[in-house]
C-alpha cells in the first residue's frame, strides 16, 4: 500500500541530493544505512508477509507520527508480536532505497486487545442481517430496505489518504454506477451503498460532501448510490459478516477491502476482496441479478 510513497521518497531524495552535490559541503554525506529510533504500538500483524503495521510517534529527522506497515529484518519475529503490543525498534533506512526494515524490536508492554477479526463470515447464499444505517442526508435506512434490488455494497472512510485504497474503490464505484445508470432496468433494479469505516468522523454532512464529488455534484445521484454510516457496534458485526478486517488508531484506519453483491432476496451473491476487481465484471454481475420483466 505504501510503495508509491516509497518510490516518491526515493525519487525526491535523489532530486535533493542532486542539488546538494553541487553545493560545498552543506550537510554530512550519508554513506550507509541510517538508523532511527521508533516507539509505537502494533496495530496489525501480517505473518505471511513478515510485516508489522505500527502506529508510532514522530521519528525526528525521518518522518512524522503515523501508522504504516514495516517489513521486519528478522521476519520470524512477527510470531512474538500481537496487536496492541507497545514496542521500541530501530528503523533501518538504507540510503537511496525504499527498503525500510525494523530491527532490534523490543516489546515494552503487552497489549490486551486484538484487532477486529472475522468471527462469523457469511458465505454465498447466506442471508445478510438487517442493519440500521444513516445515509448522507441524515435519513435512517436499513439494509432490508434494498430487498428487491441488487445491492452492491462496499466499505470506505472519507479521510482515507491512500490512492490505492478508498479513493480507488470509490472511483471504481463511480464507474460501475455510471454503467448501471445507463441501463434502464439496472437504474431501478440496482443500488450502490458505500458504508463508512469511520463512524466517529463520517457524519452525514461529511458523507454528503464526499459523495457529491463522485456524482457530478448532483444530489439526485444519491437515489442510486448512497453513502451511509452505522454505529461502531453494528459496523463491527457487518464487517465480520463480510470478512472485512479493520483497526483504528488515531485518525487512521488500517483496513482490508471487501465489495459485496447482495441479491434482491437479501442473500450474499458474490464478493470481491481488495481493489483489483474489474469494473466491467462487477457491473455485469450486478446487472445479472437485476429483476427483469417485473418492473
Amino acid at each position: 500500500m505504501i510503495s508509491p510513497s516509497r518510490i516518491a521518497i526515493t525519487v525526491l531524495l535523489f532530486a535533493l541530493a542532486g542539488c546538494r552535490s553541487s553545493q560545498t559541503a552543506t550537510t554530512t554525506a550519508h554513506s550507509a544505512a541510517q538508523h532511527y529510533h521508533l516507539a509505537g504500538t502494533v496495530v496489525a500483524v501480517n505473518a505471511a508477509a513478515g510485516e508489522l503495521t505500527v502506529k508510532h510517534g514522530a521519528i525526528p529527522g525521518f518522518m512524522p507520527a503515523m501508522t504504516m506497515p514495516y517489513k521486519l529484518k528478522d521476519a520470524g519475529r512477527v510470531r512474538d508480536l500481537k496487536p496492541g503490543d507497545s514496542i521500541t525498534a530501530e528503523v533501518v533506512a538504507p540510503e537511496a532505497s525504499d527498503d525500510f526494515v525494523l530491527d532490534q524490536i523490543a516489546v515494552t508492554a503487552h497489549g490486551a486487545n486484538g484487532p477486529v477479526v472475522a468471527a462469523r463470515r457469511l458465505g454465498v447464499g447466506d442471508a445478510v442481517p438487517d442493519v440500521p444505517l444513516v445515509n448522507q442526508d441524515g435519513r435512517a435506512v436499513h439494509l432490508r430496505d434494498y430487498r428487491g434490488r441488487a445491492l452492491l455494497l462496499t466499505f470506505i472512510y472519507t479521510r482515507c489518504p491512500m490512492p490505492t485504497a478508498c479513493p480507488l474503490i470509490t472511483s471504481r464505484f463511480a464507474r460501475v454506477n455510471r454503467a448501471l445508470l445507463s441501463d434502464a432496468a439496472a437504474r431501478t433494479g440496482s443500488h450502490l451503498l458505500s458504508i463508512s469505516l469511520d463512524p466517529a468522523f463520517d457524519k452525514p454532512p461529511v458523507l454528503r460532501r464526499y459523495g457529491l464529488a463522485y456524482i457530478n455534484d448532483d444530489p439526485a445521484g444519491f437515489a442510486h448510490w448512497e453513502f451511509a454510516v452505522t454505529t461502531p457496534e453494528d459496523l463491527r458485526g457487518l464487517a465480520q459478516s463480510f470478512g472485512l478486517e479493520y483497526s483504528v488508531a488515531d485518525n487512521q484506519i488500517t483496513h482490508t477491502m471487501q465489495t459485496v453483491l447482495i441479491a434482491p432476496n437479501g442473500t450474499v451473491a458474490r464478493s470481491w476482496a481488495g481493489s483489483g476487481w474489474s469494473e466491467d465484471e462487477v457491473a455485469a454481475a450486478v446487472k445479472s441479478l437485476v429483476p427483469r420483466g417485473g418492473r
Partner: peptide
Amino acid sequence: AEGLRIYAMQCSPCHEATATAGLVV
C-alpha cells in the same frame, strides 16, 4: 527538507504518483 519528507509520505502518493490512474478525479 523536513517539508519534503512530510510531502513524500503524505502528499506524493496522490499528487506525484502514477498509482492514481484509477481515480475519477
